[in-house]
Design a protein around this nucleic acid. Sequence first.
DNA 1: AAAAATATTTAGGTAAGTCTAAAAATAAGT
DNA 2: ACTTATTTTTAGACTTACCTAAATATTTTT
Lengths: 220, 220
Amino acid sequence: MTITHAEENYLKAIFTIAEKEAGPALTNAIAAQMQTSAASVTDMLKRLSDKQLITYEKYRGVQLTEEGGRLATALIRKHRLWEVFLVDKLGFAWDEVHELAEQLEHVQGNDLVSRLDSFLGYPKFDPHGDPIPDAEGRWTFRKQAPLATLKAGERGIVTGVDDHSTTFLQYLDQLGLILGAELELLERFPYDQSVRVRIRDGRELILSDKVTQNLFVKIS
Amino acid sequence: MTITHAEENYLKAIFTIAEKEAGPALTNAIAAQMQTSAASVTDMLKRLSDKQLITYEKYRGVQLTEEGGRLATALIRKHRLWEVFLVDKLGFAWDEVHELAEQLEHVQGNDLVSRLDSFLGYPKFDPHGDPIPDAEGRWTFRKQAPLATLKAGERGIVTGVDDHSTTFLQYLDQLGLILGAELELLERFPYDQSVRVRIRDGRELILSDKVTQNLFVKIS
DNA sequence: AAAAATATTTAGGTAAGTCTAAAAATAAGT
DNA sequence: ACTTATTTTTAGACTTACCTAAATATTTTT
Ligand SMILES: [Mn+2]
Ligand SMILES: [Mn+2]
Ligand SMILES: [Mn+2]
Ligand SMILES: [Mn+2]
């Protein structure tokens, strides 16, 4: 049973939604994620259901089967490993690699993923701080929370982002808030929930509520 | 104007045929190369002609336009660079990389090829000894000839293969006839045109006519 | 030059994946 | 409970890329 690129992309979208919403993925949510029409989604859901990759009840949304989950996880693994390759080996910036990884994740071959994994030194996280499942599909979780939850006086290390948009990533670059950056929250302004932080080199920054909600830190 | 994977593959096939046959590529030759039906080829030729990537005269075969040639060359460049990556960086054997490169060559992105090229150290030849065109589409040619043309007493260095099949490549591995291997032709047997050669470590091998015609050497 | 063989194109179909518009089901509001 | 709004599915159509079978063009043979 062969699986198409489109089918793989839908499985990934369903996985992502199910993870976030914690329940069945609804047609419209999938359509939004895939940037396509609800009609096209319904079409595809039938195909995926025929292939036993999802369980599908009309009007009730879908869930991945065990096999569907395995495939989605493998795809995410490939996507994130390729992102590590593009950043660590080819020198791309972290805001430039997503579209390329969207293509590379579909390349299939026997040993490719494991050899790539080995070549990269078995990374546990991708350039955006997202975890990379291992060959058996096991995830490494990390204690992290949005910067918005940090209290004044606490210190943290930047470990990831929720928003993956180019504009956000480039803004963080400009601020020097790359992965691993250390910071201390000096104060939070009640007016708009913005914060003042001090970073490693002593510089102080004001970060908006929007930034603090989309930036993950590990409390240190 | 977007170009599909299938279209790219046809352009490459036409390029390869035109190179070998030195003339227009005929429908049946393309069908054979693409392992598809002549009817499907005719279909595609119309599409490529509409996109001005080939000049097509019914029943008379096709030729690549300048733009078509540029695209085909770029595709071959990508294919061969990825093959170098798979062998040099991921440790694949030279007989394992073609199918993967067939997929990787279609990945498109701004800087990808040039960064890959740089990462690999600007290789001029792929793992099979085939030349890699540079970013401007210029080819590096090498004085090489089939081992069949070598005369008794002459020495050569293995520089490439004509037959790219797994069985041939693995057989060469077994014999120790990898790229760069030095050999001396000791004698040619008139009966079947097989030859006796001595290789670097002093071992002597008997090579069939089929082998000598598919193995390229640089006379040294 | 006509007949036979070969090469190529056309005709008609299929499957994947997409679309818009209309119909049907479900959920929400009064 | 009934009406309205929202969500989802169905219907019908389009494109790409493939197929087989039949028709036509070209080349080769006699
Ligand atoms: Mn990504
Ligand atoms: Mn990522
Ligand atoms: Mn190849
Ligand atoms: Mn090659």
